[in-house]
Design a binder for these strands. Structure first.
Lengths: 255, 255
DNA sequence: TTTTATGTTGTATAGTATAAAACATCGTTT
DNA sequence: AAACGATGTTTTATACTATACAACATAAAA
């Protein structure tokens, strides 16, 4: 990433660490100065000052036992951000339609950095046994159906970069284990126009995903249907048709 | 606020302005370096550096026309924060119950600073004409039923501080116009145990709210029912009963 | 075309972020 | 009970960097 290296020169160090501290709260519900200090390797007193500052800004709140948590403002601003993502506004009705027609959960995902796919919207299925991922959840792209659908339509150099920076952790026996099989899978996805996740991230969970391409064929997102393998396999044809119909309409709207 | 003044000494200036910049995005969907610079009175190049830093941290994204928007991470972290607020987890079922029983929208609000009340959860009513406020929305406490319910049970010194720092903008003919009538209203709220908002924030909108008090009688939140004045007034007695029932159960749970 | 506003990039310095050290408290261990 | 270790908080000195200024490039406006 030459652009990132270039910007490196302008980074305000303390601001950057402030957001690193905020990042810690993705994993931990509350953190003390000492814990923050250990996590990002800074001095305890410095950590304390960061926390005080962020509390004063309303982005953290201090609990009674001198620990800190995410403040209400984070939640509020998150709502604002969520509502503003026009992609969501546009696509949400289609997700609802998909989950109503099929009974399965439907998701909208994007790749917002070079390696991870993020679920930015969902419509949970009506059936009792149903997939439910939290919005905002991130995974390496090659591990999910939505991620592979997007990755397959990225440029060769993007994919090569991906292979260099991704780690091929193994979630299930079906997980993609190396660059070679990933490349073969992506070829197949391009050939058939959709991707599947056949229990590759979690046992019993099957997913079908179709990319949403911009006018200049850039994969800006993908939508998916997910559910238990048995149900998904028997209905694969009809699910796929619904997904492709939805994407066709979405692409008409965004071009 | 003596504690705040005391902490003033530890504030990291650049971190604080970073969050001020983030605050700007509550109002504006996208901002350029020059705009940010004007809004918070800093140099254009400094603003630029802040934006680059925050982009690199994933909390902002740069659009094609060199403007910046809230990044996906804000939305993700907001979700996380929202899910973690145990108050919400605890109270949400009651909100759902209230809106199902009454058909009207039900809200949970807190005061997370000295002047504003924030809606942190809701259950939208089942009726066609229904109130729907975005979660995270903030107003001066004296303007809303939920705000007044909380304010009424705060300490005298808190209320005096409130009167000093709040501005009595007039939303409708019924809005509270001065400190005197606010104090009288708060007295009445304490006397009857609930607050109303009789078209004080928006014409036609009526709201009944009841505070949620902690073991030591601190007003930690309030819940409300809101809807068109006509419907609300005719059902006021029954709505109030439902609200008080819910609060009684909630208070039993949190003490 | 000229002008004005703005994004972006160097640069010098005033100011502050940072770590180290010290104190206060707390819970644990001996 | 005493000693210890871990941690929250506060003070302090210094290396560093956040900041504004200036300059350039570019885009929009006049």
């Amino acid at each position: 990433m030459p652009d990132n290296d270039k910007n490196e020169r302008y980074i305000l160090h303390s601001v950057s660490t402030a957001f690193s501290i905020l990042d810690l709260f993705f994993e931990r519900e509350e953190l003390s100065p000492a814990e923050v200090a250990r996590c990002i390797n800074i001095n305890r007193s410095t950590a304390f000052r960061f926390l005080v500052t962020m509390e004063q800004s309303g982005y953290l709140i201090k609990t009674d036992n001198a620990k800190y948590r995410l403040g209400v403002k984070v939640s509020s601003l998150g709502q604002v951000a969520h509502n503003r993502m026009e992609l969501i506004t546009l696509i949400h009705p289609f997700l609802v339609g998909l989950s109503e027609k099929t009974g399965e959960s439907s998701h909208l995902a994007i790749m917002d950095d070079a390696t991870h796919v993020t679920f930015i919207d969902k419509s949970v299925g009506t059936l009792w046994l149903t997939m439910d991922v939290m919005i905002g959840y991130s995974k390496y792209a090659h591990l999910t159906g939505t991620g592979k659908a997007i990755l397959a339509y990225k440029s060769d150099q993007f994919i090569n970069q991906y292979i260099r920076s991704a780690s091929f952790e193994i979630c299930t026996p079906n997980s993609i284990k190396d660059a070679g099989s990933l490349l073969r899978t992506l070829d197949m996805i391009r050939a058939q126009g959709y991707s599947t996740d056949n229990e590759e991230v979690e046992a019993g969970l099957y997913c079908i995903a179709v990319p949403v391409l911009s006018r200049d064929a850039d994969p800006i997102a993908s939508i998916s249907l997910s559910g238990p393998t048995t149900r998904m396999v028997t209905n694969q044809e009809s699910h796929l048709k619904h997904l492709k119909d939805a994407v066709a309409q979405i692409e008409r709207l965004i071009r």
